[in-house]
Amino acid sequence: MNNYFDYFNYTHGLMNQNQNNYNMINEQDDYNIDPYVGFIRGNLFDNTYVPYKNYNPARLNPKNEQENDLLLVQIYGFAAHELTLYLDTHPNDNKAIKLRSKYMNLYKQALEQYENKYGPINLSSSLLDETPWGWNTEYWPWEGVN
């Protein structure tokens, strides 16, 4: 997976694909990190992942474009956050700093793309400069999408 758009196309493809294919993202870097797999299992790092009994992580398959775009924000935000925690205890790890920077940039792109299509989700969004006030949406995150 070379860039954001490959990844975006991949997750778009996910909507119509066999659910068993989620392992196909393999972003080989120095930490062998795969942001999708890291996100669905809640642990970016292979060597510290501990499953419970015989449960597998839930495979998050977006049902529509909006869910897909939201998932990208969550995936890249999570990867950047995991590397933040890692760097707190490994502050001189230059490779991890570069990797965090990469995922933080992907997060910002995904966030901007989501907001441009569906409305502001953070208070720094320039979309909130418009009238009527765009923060008081009907829908809030805890309500679920069913």
Binding site: G42, E67, L123, W142, G144
Partner: peptide
């Protein structure tokens, strides 16, 4: 600062 999404989806 609040971001109007969950960290992981709950549906």
């Amino acid at each position: 600062k609040y971001t109007k999404i969950l960290q992981y989806p709950i549906n």
